[in-house]
């Protein structure tokens, strides 16, 4: 990727999993060298398994959570491989895309 608008190219990885699996995903993030991540809890949506509710009033663990991480290209392959290993055995979806950041030091 070329630099655009003076921004630094990076890779963005997004994962939607059950709340119970969010700690496993963030462990994989950390093992790949990610220095931070964003979590959006209680997300809702519709997919091959039907409609997923958003927030369950008294259960954070069985709702869905969206986890996002941005990291340099060189760490992305291992991270994606780790996440695929995780998602081979449990429900969840994975999105990988190119992205650009203004403060690359935050993501190394």
């Amino acid at each position: 990727m070329d630099e655009r608008w003076g921004l630094t190219p990076m890779v963005k990885v997004e994962v939607v999993v059950g709340g119970e699996d969010s700690a496993a995903v963030t462990d994989v993030f950390k093992a790949a060298g990610a220095v931070g991540f964003t979590a959006v809890t209680n997300v809702s949506g519709f997919g091959h398994a039907g409609y997923h509710q958003g927030r369950l009033a008294f259960n954070d663990k069985n709702g869905l959570v969206l986890l996002m991480v941005v990291l340099p290209e060189e760490g992305a392959a291992d991270l994606v491989a780790g996440l695929r290993t995780l998602l081979d055995r449990r429900p969840g979806v994975l999105f990988v895309s190119d992205t650009y950041v203004s403060r690359p030091g935050y993501f190394r």
Partner: peptide, 10 residues
């Protein structure tokens, strides 16, 4: 390491 982390959870 990321693959190992995933396997540990499993």
């Amino acid at each position: 390491p990321p693959r190992v982390a995933a396997l540990i959870d499993e």
